[in-house]
Write a protein that binds this DNA or RNA. Structure first.
Length: 825
RNA sequence: GCCGAAGUGGCGGAACAGGCAGACGCGCACGACUCAAAAUCGUGUUCCUUCGGGAGUGUGGGUUCGAUUCCCACCUUCGGCACCA
């Protein structure tokens, strides 16, 4: 008699069994090739996992299982990126130490992942807040420091009032903190930076060597924002008054040296270092005292603007004339110097040569303040258009000796002449800024630097690592812009490793993204005590073959990790320069309630726990991938999972009672065997291409086929069912194991079986059904042997479609082998 | 504004490389089983139709014997960047 399909009992039965046989342990068979499938390093939050997270972890698990069954040693690990602001903010709010709260959250994530039966090798679990881990994060900091890639500088940086810390450029979205979404402002602080800009060109070039979504590569290229151009030097006229320095020089950056003769003003960012000095200079001349006050007022009012307002492109551009003039490097003409808030302090040199005729922003500014507009480039085809600005390339006019040249030639010539005269030089600038890693917060890896009044910043000795995070009862930021660590005086006060004098520890902690910039290496040898990783293990498992995660880290983690990897390669620690050979972005899962991303605050979360309680782990896993293509955004629909539970039920019943001795014809069926080969072929191809949704559809079709074709010999029937079960096993580990072992009596796990193979020759039928078209419209069908000659097919088709041909003469007949015949009349 | 992706039944989606649009699943309708319901099984399900057919993959053109697929223009949605000189 049939046993009812009771997924709870089955799950409880097999979980401990797989644990006992170490099913997911990383393979070490030297005969097999190695393969690493890695998920993004998750940040365990108090909300726990939703079914949305399963869009990431279930496909990677299915892929890992597939790889194991096709003969690979597979490394599929999991760990916790547990330092960071939300954990700390939560801890402060709930009066609990972040160590405890993150341990709880990580444990909950792990419990849920195990509930979903994600096939991670838990013996390799890591945690970035473990001193045995952050010890090596600090070690890498020192590696960068020793290589001149970590430096301290006073800079004006994004400050989040809510989180009470500095943020990197990448971590500010639309003028808001990426973590707490509150508006950010600028603050001047001494900060540690990593010199990622030194790697900008390599970060662009090596994108061509990785198999990543084109979208992500484009985002990275845009973010790095390389532009070639020239620096142009303007000297400042200071009349006859005494100068505080000999000559003032303003360096501007332009990508369009060909427009140099169109410069009608200079614009400095309000933060430009010369603005203050120029103000002082202007003050000395009685006539411009009013002007000077104007500049001061203007800078004041700019400061009051929030960054969102300041950066809005909607807002009219504002500025103020300084009363001073610079000299044009070629014509010596006086050029008025303005301060304008549309000029960004952090890009180029924070100064712009204003060419209103050929730059939209300069044009808008010139119109507002009635500045001259001098056209120096004409479009090639049409004449000049004096009413609007022309930003394209063309032919030069009004440009002295360069008149008549095309833009490209003029760019080369003008840049060369500027260089020759010492008034400029070729220059490449990047939108990318150096990575600011100082955080004025408690819950992070301490920066392992000791400040000595005589030796300056000194690396903490390697033997002293880890520099442990001191215990603190109150780790909330004081709001003074300093890290809470600054209050732990006996931790701060130490001796200089170089001179032995009194010294102080650096009190800032590292950005959490430092931890995730090398974690993939740690998984190769997670228990290594003497080194960050065992180079042999790293060579075996890295770079990561397939990296799976969402697109949200396109310019943060993915850029930082690439940078660190290149630094490590330069230091001779590893022999690859890209950490992730292949990247796959899963689509997001939205709530059916509001179409939004699931989150507790929106109250639209569906948890794997509740779905598993109702429908079982197998159903959840299948449904998550069946909802839609791996990389497409989909909406969770509570009702649709019924299709999956019916499918599993049907398999259960067929495996128990499908075999009906009386119905057996006893004759092997060729067609039946062909269908088996075809489903293996389809599912295998879909697995390779991460088309899990159509793989499930193929399995459903095959099960429907089996259901309707039970009149074959017992052996053939059993072989078909077993093939089906193995193909289904990566998706539905429980039901397949139960049937494999308990119903069919096998004594080893189905998950250790080889992936079934197919014979290409057996996948094609001996007869084909062709569509017969008249002028491209399907009118009839013919069934023919696949080896029928074309002439015969032609004849057959014409005869068959006689009534549609209707006496007309076919003047063309097109045959697409195996598909159709098109008769053109 | 710029860059990128995508628009297919009531719904999620399928269609190798230009070759029978709508696989698979949900939902719905009808039938079988049942006292009844659930479950299951079966049949049907793009729209219009005078039952011959006709129309149909965001819209309008084009290439082709043939277009969801290629080209051009446009509309809509989503994602990224957003004064980067």
């Amino acid at each position: 008699m049939n046993k009812k399909y009771d997924f709870h009992t089955i799950e409880n039965k097999w979980r401990p069994y797989w644990q006992a046989i170490d099913l997911y342990k990383t393979g070490e068979d030297p005969q097999k090739p190695n393969y690493t499938i890695l998920d993004y390093f998750p940040y365990p939050s108090g909300e726990g996992l939703s079914v949305g997270h399963c869009r990431n972890y279930v496909p990677s698990c299915i892929a890992a299982r597939y790889k194991r069954m096709t003969g690979y040693n597979v490394l599929h690990p999991m760990g916790w990126d547990a330092f960071g602001l939300p954990a700390e903010n939560y801890a402060i709010a709930h009066h609990i130490h972040p160590r405890e709260s993150t341990a709880q959250f990580a444990a909950n994530y792990k419990r849920q992942m195990q509930l979903v039966e994600c096939s991670y090798d838990w013996s390799r679990e890591i945690n970035s807040t473990d001193p045995d881990y952050y010890r090596w994060t600090q070690w890498f900091f020192l590696l960068l420091f020793k290589r001149g890639l970590a430096y301290q500088a006073m800079s004006s940086q994004w400050w989040c009032d809510q989180c009470q810390t500095i943020l990197a450029n990448e971590q500010v979205e639309h003028g808001r903190c990426w973590r707490c979404d509150s508006p950010v402002s600028k603050r001047d602080l001494m900060q540690w930076h990593f010199k990622i800009t030194a790697y900008a060109d390599r970060l662009i070039a090596d994108l061509d060597t990785v198999n990543w979504p084109e979208r992500i590569k484009t985002m990275q290229r845009n973010w790095i924002g390389r532009s070639e151009g020239a620096e142009v030097l303007f000297t400042v006229e200071t009349s006859d008054v005494p100068k505080t320095s000999d000559v003032y020089e303003i360096i501007t950056f332009t990508t369009r040296p060909d427009t140099l003769f169109g410069v009608t003003f200079l614009a400095l960012a309000p933060e430009h270092p010369l603005v203050g000095e120029i103000g002082t200079e202007a003050q000395r001349t009685a006539t411009s005292a009013a002007l000077s006050a104007g500049v001061a007022n203007y800078i004041q009012s700019t400061r009051r603007l929030s960054e969102i307002e300041r950066q809005s492109t909607e807002r009219a551009k504002t500025g103020v004339f300084t009363g001073l003039y610079a000299r044009h490097p070629f014509t010596d003409e006086p050029i008025p110097i303005w301060v304008a808030d549309y000029v960004l302090p952090g890009y180029g040199s924070g100064a712009v040569m204003g060419v209103p005729a050929h730059d939209e922003r300069d044009f808008a500014f010139a119109q507002t303040y009635n500045l001259r507009i001098v056209n120096v480039v004409n479009p090639d085809e049409t004449g000049p258009d004096e009413t609007a600005c022309f930003t394209g390339y063309g032919r030069l006019v009004n440009s002295g000796p360069y008149t008549g040249m095309d833009s490209a030639a003029a760019i080369t010539a003008i840049t060369a002449d500027l260089s020759a005269q010492g008034k400029g030089r070729p220059r490449v600038t990047y939108r990318l800024r150096d990575w600011l890693i100082s955080r004025q917060r408690y819950w992070g890896a301490p920066i392992p630097i000791i400040h000595c009044s005589t030796c300056g910043p000194v690396a903490a000795p390697e033997a002293d690592l880890p520099v442990r995070l001191p215990e603190m009862a109150d780790f909330a930021p004081a709001g003074d812009g300093r890290s809470p660590l600054a209050r732990v005086t006996d931790w701060v006060n130490t001796t200089c490793p170089q001179c032995g004098g009194a010294a102080q520890r650096e009190t800032d902690t590292m950005d959490g993204f430092a931890c995730s910039s090398w974690y993939f290496l740690r998984f190769a040898s997670p228990h290594e005590a003497a080194r960050p990783f065992d180079p042999e293990a790293a060579a075996r498992w890295l770079p990561v073959d397939t990296y799976i995660g969402g697109a949200e880290h396109a310019v943060m983690h993915l850029l930082y990790a690439r940078f660190w990897t290149k630094v490590m390669a330069d230091a001779g620690l590893i022999d690859f320069v890209e950490p992730f050979s292949e990247l796959k972005n899963q689509g997001m899962l939205h709530s059916a309630v509001d179409g939004q991303k699931m989150s507790k605050s929106k109250g639209n979360v569906v948890t794997p726990d509740e779905v598993i309680a109702r429908h079982g782990t197998d159903a959840l896993r299948l449904y998550v991938v069946f909802l839609g293509p791996f990389d497409a955004d989909v909406i969770w629909d509570d009702v649709g999972i019924r299709g999956i539970t019916r499918f599993l039920d049907r398999f259960w019943r067929l495996a128990h009672s499908g075999f009906d001795a009386k119905a057996q014809s006893g004759k092997e069926s060729e067609e039946f065997e062909r269908e088996r080969h075809r489903v293996i072929k389809r599912v295998t191809a879909d697995m390779e291409g991460y088309r899990f949704n159509t793989a499930v559809a193929a399995l459903m079709e095959y099960l429907n086929y089996l259901h309707d074709h039970r009149d074959v010999p017992a052996d053939q029937w059993q072989q078909a069912l077993e093939s089906f079960a193995i193909l289904l096993a990566p998706f539905a580990p429980f039901i397949t194991e139960e049937i494999w072992q308990t119903v069919w009596g096998h004594t080893d796990s189905i998950h250790r079986q080889n992936w079934p193979t197919y014979d290409e020759a057996l996948t094609t039928a001996v007869t084909a059904r062709l569509a017969v078209q008249i002028n491209g419209k399907v009118r009839d069908h013919i069934t023919i042997p696949t080896d029928m000659a074309e002439a015969e097919i032609r004849q057959l088709a014409v005869n068959q479609a006689q009534r549609y041909v209707n006496g007309r003469t076919p003047h063309n007949i097109i045959i697409v082998p195996g598909r159709l015949v098109n008769i053109v009349v």
